[in-house]
C-alpha cells in the first residue's frame, strides 16, 4: 500500500499529506508531485555532468606549489603517490578515499540505483534504500579536498618564498561533487518501492 495507491500525496518537504490532485502544499507551498516523472532523467543528466567534470579534475593539477627554488604542479593521484613516497600513508589513504574512492563509489551507487529502478527490479529494496541514504549523507564529505585546497591557497601566500594556488582541477572537482550531490538528490527513492507495487498489483 502506498500513498499514491491511497489517492494521497505527501509533501517531500514537510510531510503534509494532501489529496492526489493537490498541486501545492498548503503548509509549505512547495510543489507536490506524487511521482517525479523526470527523476531518472535528472539523475542521469547530473551524473553525466559530474562524471565529465571528474575527468579534468584528475588530469589537471590540483595544487600549484611554487617555492624559492622549485615549482611543482600536482594532480590528485600524483599528490597521493607523492605522499606515499614521503611515507605518509595514513594521509595518503584519507586523500585517496576522499578524492577517488568516494566520488567513484557514488557514481557507481547512483548508476546502480538508477538502472535498477529503470529495470523495475524488485530485489533487495531495503538494501537499495540504505544505499541511497548513504550516498545522500556521504556526498558532502567529498568536498573535503576542495576545502583543503581553499584553505592552503588562502594561508600559504608568502610571496616569493612559497605560494600555493588552486589549479583547474580544484574547480572541476568541486563541480563534480556538486553535480553528483544533485544527482543523488534528484533520485526519487519512492521509485524503488514502485517496482514492488507493479509486481504485486
Amino acid at each position: 500500500m502506498s500513498a499514491r495507491a491511497a489517492g494521497l500525496v505527501a509533501c517531500r518537504n514537510c510531510g503534509q499529506v494532501h489529496q492526489l490532485d493537490t498541486l501545492r502544499c498548503k503548509r509549505c507551498d512547495s510543489t507536490l508531485q506524487s511521482r517525479d516523472s523526470q527523476s531518472l532523467q535528472k539523475v542521469w543528466a547530473w551524473l553525466v555532468a559530474g562524471m565529465i567534470a571528474y575527468v579534468p579534475a584528475n588530469l589537471y593539477p590540483m595544487l600549484l606549489t611554487s617555492t624559492l627554488t622549485d615549482r611543482s604542479e600536482s594532480t590528485i593521484i600524483g599528490g597521493v603517490i607523492e605522499l606515499v613516497d614521503y611515507g605518509a600513508i595514513g594521509i595518503a589513504l584519507v586523500v585517496f578515499a576522499a578524492s577517488v574512492l568516494i566520488p567513484v563509489g557514488k557514481f557507481a551507487a547512483i548508476i546502480y540505483l538508477a538502472v535498477s529502478v529503470q529495470r523495475g527490479s524488485g530485489r533487495n529494496r531495503h538494501g537499495r534504500h540504505k544505499a541511497y541514504d548513504v550516498v545522500e549523507f556521504i556526498g558532502r564529505w567529498s568536498m573535503i579536498d576542495v576545502f583543503v585546497v581553499a584553505i592552503l591557497s588562502a594561508l600559504v601566500q608568502l610571496s616569493a618564498i612559497a605560494t600555493i594556488n588552486p589549479g583547474i582541477a580544484a574547480v572541476s572537482f568541486a563541480l563534480s561533487v556538486i553535480f553528483t550531490m544533485l544527482a543523488a538528490q534528484s533520485f526519487d527513492p519512492r521509485l524503488i518501492w514502485d517496482a514492488d507495487r507493479t509486481i504485486h498489483d
Partner: peptide, 21 residues
Amino acid sequence: QRLSLVWVVPIIALAVSLGAA
C-alpha cells in the same frame, strides 16, 4: 518535451571540457 532541462548541464560540462582539452 519529455526531456528534462537538466540535460543542459552535462552538455555544457562536456562542451567546456572538450573545449579545454
